[in-house]
Write a protein that binds this DNA or RNA. Structure first.
Length: 281
DNA sequence: CGTATCCTGACC
DNA sequence: GGTCAGGATACG
């Protein structure tokens, strides 16, 4: 699938974030988005729900959208990268941004923002819009008592240490990087922060997950927190002027820690950037 | 584990 | 006008 890679081997870093300045919503971004939604929508009643894209209309059919009118939002919870809008009637609107979703809040009378896929008009005259240029976000209405998404411990859980991570990794085969992307292992890490966390922990992404001992797993947990905390600080959505990521998107550049050359490989179909010099197997 | 699918904008 | 990225899921 990557034939033509041989010849013209100039090395401008591949555009890993096709949306330019916008990064994929991972835990810090979803956390911010959920906070924005919480401030705007909790204790508000939905007046009308409208789907502006067939992919959303498919998942949230006309009946479901109609049934949202009159529903009051009592809480907005985040679990991993999932957002759970708790409704007063016990139902849950389950939202996942996937690659490119975000919330935008504005007056209901204003024209919908570009790439708006779902509109929730509220009883205070405002409107929450799910914007998503890729239109891959998912929205599902769940009945009262429906099981929560199957997720591992929160990446930000303070009680998650090397020992707990070892438990979460139990029985997992294969290299650590793809394993970290499995939300049932740890909830909240995506491609960007998984790579960042491994760089911080100085662990080669190709290392077999099962071969990692307590010491390195402790380091990995520190790395995960470090990466996520940096994400919270950086506000990666609009990061152009801000701190750059340590390895992600830096293929061909010098490692800021050891001056090695950052490499990019593909694991489980996802690109992984790492420093082959200071990240060890 | 890998590959295909969904979807669209940005870059070639 | 083709390629590709990305998260989650389904399937081989």
């Amino acid at each position: 699938m990557r034939q033509g890679a041989r010849k013209g081997a100039r090395t401008p870093s591949p555009r890993l974030t096709p949306l330019g300045f916008r990064h994929v919503p991972e835990l810090p971004e979803v956390d911010r988005a959920a906070a924005l939604l919480r401030a705007a929508a909790v204790d508000r009643t939905i007046r009308e729900a409208r789907a502006l894209h067939p992919a959303i209309a498919r998942r949230l059919d006309a009946g479901a959208r109609r049934s949202l009118a009159g529903a009051r939002i009592v809480a907005v919870e985040r679990r991993g990268k999932h957002q759970l809008l708790r409704l007063a009637d016990g139902r849950t609107l389950h939202v996942h941004f996937r690659m490119a979703g975000d919330w935008r809040v504005a007056a209901a009378a204003a024209p919908p923002p570009r790439h708006a896929r779902l509109l929730l008009d509220l009883d205070d005259g405002r409107r929450v819009a799910l914007v998503d240029p890729r239109a891959l976000s998912t929205v599902d209405l769940r009945a009262p008592g429906a099981p929560p998404p199957r997720l591992g411990p929160e990446a930000t859980d303070p009680s998650l240490d090397g020992a707990a991570l070892r438990v979460a990794l139990r029985g997992r085969r294969g290299p650590i990087k793809p394993v970290l992307l499995d939300q049932r292992v740890v909830a909240g890490l995506g491609n960007i922060y998984a790579a960042e966390a491994l760089w911080h922990a100085r662990i080669d992404p190709r290392t077999a997950a099962a071969s990692l001992g307590r010491v390195r797993l402790d380091r990995l947990m520190v790395g995960i927190r470090h990466a996520l905390a940096a994400g919270v600080q950086r506000d990666t959505r609009y990061s152009d002027g801000g701190t750059r990521l340590a390895v992600y998107g830096r293929e061909g550049e010098a490692c800021t820690r050891c001056d090695g050359t950052i490499r990019r490989i593909v694991q489980a179909g996802r690109s992984t950037c790492f420093c082959p010099r200071c990240q060890r197997r």
